[in-house]
Write a protein that binds this DNA or RNA. Structure first.
Length: 486
RNA sequence: GGUCUCGUGGCCGAGCGGCUAGGCAGUGGUCUGCAAAACCAUCUACAGCGGUUCGAAUCCGCUCGAGACCUCCA
């Protein structure tokens, strides 16, 4: 079975066929770096990390471009407000690029924690001003943009006559033009719907570059067109991003590329859905977001405890990327426990004793996992199948089910492939990696063992209870006792 | 107001015409000095009403409810 991808353009699943065999160009909208990443940012990062990982796993050579927006993203109205980065810089009395550096570093740290692969190229908007100016020239030459008060705007109405502005979002722009006309008023734009390609810089504006139209800075939508085109070509395979970017950001990207190159830039548009909190989208403007660092430390009033990066990752992968996911402590707790159980398969497998026959269809399990991934990256189904396999593994470990050595080896391969390579989960350190602590704990457990052997339960329980106070959990089993830090 | 999505068992979430996922919690059990952990078993739901069909959670219509986009947001 071959890979099917849900294409926002056609609103249905399509067979994935790359432009050049064995190569995939993947572009994903990265963050605007003016604040800490929150749970909502983790969604596209993880979603497209899995897309990237799976494509690579399938043997494709993927060039994965994820940008950093460090200029041109304005507040409030897309073409009027203050630059987000510049505002932060002003508030913190920093150079804008200090803000960019700081939050880029923090973002990278969070991505590492989430085990998100680094993109092949991570371009910054401010490093591609020349490319953006070149595109604006092309669009002007084609007649789809106009100059106004030192700024350049995209002429949506003109474009819509020859092409269609709204192919991606399914919007009928004529209707919307009616509405915005009334609102536009004394704007320097012909039309409320037109968006800035180049914006003239006011005297107090710090981030500015020279251009044929005077000093200014590029519009937000343009950077992705410029960088996508530069590194992946005028046409490339997959463009990803959050559903909230579909309009106007991605819609405008398409318009810009068609206006400049005469080509629709992207074959497959993929959009991840939102994470909600109390049924509402988690977003910066609503102020209802929880940052990733807050999840990792548990320091937020809505959080009952800290949640590890892998818990967050597993939680997100347990839902399909095109569904909304509602955040709650209960859901996160469930994810945490479930993931630990699933991960235990990796540890159990080497201990299972082989039989000469098999009573579980390992090949079928493998097939089902691939089928799920091929069905538009259905990670929750993959996880469900892995849980089914876990049941068989546990049964075999208890001697209640037979598996041949060959099947056991295959299971190890399947679990390693899907859990680590494709889903991108990793083992988390269970506590401090400290030789002294290890030594002391071994020593303490040894004393406790002596007590237990003498049926000195009061000493044994005292040790257990005392350690529990510091979140050190003792687990007794047939083969002896072990400890872990919770 | 316009465009579009969605309403699944205590909770989270798949499925998208028949074979009634999965996880967490709960309950029962195995193990254990006790406990924890672990393991096994178990709980049968698809907002409401009508229609299409041999058959619908799944298709169509209506009603109610929630959300997203239409201004920046992943």
């Amino acid at each position: 079975m071959e890979l099917q991808i849900y294409n926002t353009l056609s609103r249905k699943k399509e067979l994935f066929e790359p432009i050049s065999p064995n190569h995939v160009g993947l572009y994903v909208c990265g963050p605007t770096v003016y604040g800490d990443a929150h749970l909502g940012h983790a969604r596209p990062a993880i979603t497209f990390d899995v897309v990237y990982r799976y494509l690579e796993h399938c043997g494709y050579k993927v060039r994965y471009v994820r940008n950093i927006t460090d200029v041109g993203h304005l507040e409030n109205d897309a073409d009027e407000g203050e630059d987000k980065i510049a505002k932060k810089a002003r508030l913190e009395q920093l150079e804008p690029m200090e803000v960019v550096q700081y939050f880029s570093d923090r973002y990278h740290e969070n991505m590492d924690q989430l085990n998100v692969c680094k993109p092949s190229i991570e371009p910054r908007a401010s490093g591609h001003i020349i490319e953006q100016i070149e595109i604006i020239k092309k669009i002007l030459d084609a007649g789809y943009a106009y100059l106004s008060e030192g700024s350049v705007y995209f002429d949506v109405e003109k474009y819509n006559k020859d092409h269609r502005y709204g192919v991606l979002s399914g919007r009928n722009i004529e209707e919307v033009l009616e509405n915005t006309r009334q609102l536009a008023g004394q704007s320097e734009k012909k039309n409320g719907f037109d968006f800035a390609l180049w914006k003239k810089a006011n005297p107090e504006h710090i981030m500015r570059w020279p251009s044929p139209w005077g000093e200014g800075f590029p519009g937000w939508h343009l950077e992705c067109s410029a960088m996508g085109c530069k590194y992946l070509g005028e046409e490339f395979d997959i463009h990803g991003g959050g559903l909230d970017l579909m309009f106007p950001h991605h819609e405008s990207e398409i318009a810009q590329s068609i206006a400049a190159n005469g080509k629709s830039p992207v074959h497959y548009w993929m959009h991840n859905n939102m994470i909600t909190i109390n049924g509402q989208k988690m977003g910066k403007s609503l102020g209802n977001f929880i940052t990733l660092d807050q999840f990792f430390t548990g320091e937020h009033e809505s959080l009952q405890q800290a949640y590890s990066a892998m818990t967050i990752r597993f939680f997100i992968l347990q839902a399909h990327y095109r569904s909304t996911v509602d955040f709650s402590n209960e859901a996160l707790l469930a994810a945490e426990k479930g993931m630990k159980r699933l991960m235990s398969a990796i540890e159990t497998l080497p201990n299972v004793k082989a039989s000469d026959t098999s009573e579980f269809n390992v090949a079928e399990l493998k097939e089902k996992c691939y089928a799920a991934m091929n069905d538009d990256f259905n990670t929750p189904i993959v996880i469900a199948h892995l849980f089914d396999g876990l049941k068989a593994i546990n049964a075999a470990n208890d001697g209640k089910l037979k598996l041949t050595q060959e099947d056991l080896n295959e299971l190890v391969a399947i679990y390693n492939t899907f859990i680590f390579d494709v889903l991108g989960l990793k083992e988390e350190a269970s506590g401090e990696n400290n030789e002294l602590i290890d030594y002391l704990m071994d020593f303490i457990l040894d004393i406790r063992k002596d007590a237990r052997d003498k049926k000195d339960w009061s000493t044994s329980d005292k040790i257990r209870d005392e350690l529990a106070k510091r979140n050190i959990v003792i687990k007794d089993s047939k083969d002896g006792s072990s400890w872990s830090l919770n």
